[in-house]
């Protein structure tokens, strides 16, 4: 095994991001979509911390802290919306949450 460098971390971040995208695109369940979104945010954080370590520049870690905070707020809002969907539709299947036509 060769030495682990920045590119290894970045590649892992890219894989994580794409898996998250895949989840968002294919999952029908609203909460599963939220879970996939969290994967995407984590990919970003992984990138930031890897950059911070290899540059080295502490700012990357600072940015990652902010991203975590924002992700927390985002998840709160997401869960609230899921509950609101559930109350109105009695399910959280996004494919069937489509009442408007234009």
């Amino acid at each position: 095994m060769s030495a682990i460098g920045l590119n290894h971390f970045l590649a892992l971040g890219a894989v994580l991001f794409c898996l998250g995208t895949y989840g968002v695109l294919t999952r029908r369940n609203a909460i599963a979509v939220l879970l996939s979104l969290e994967l995407m945010f984590n990919a970003v954080n992984l990138n930031l911390v890897a950059f911070a370590r290899f540059m080295p520049n502490l700012d990357g870690v600072v940015l990652a802290v902010f991203v975590i905070a924002v992700a927390a707020a985002e998840a709160t809002v997401g869960v609230a919306l899921v509950l609101s969907i559930y109350r109105n539709f009695r399910h959280i299947d996004l494919d069937q949450v489509d009442t408007m036509k234009g």
């Binding site: 984590n42 992700a71 927390a72 998840a75 709160t76 869960v79 899921v82 509950l83 559930y86 959280i92």
Partner: peptide
């Protein structure tokens, strides 16, 4: 993340 966000999502799963 694991302690608050993920747990909250698990709660949402259980509630819905």
């Amino acid at each position: 993340y694991a302690g608050a966000i993920a747990i909250m999502l698990l709660f949402a799963i259980m509630l819905t």
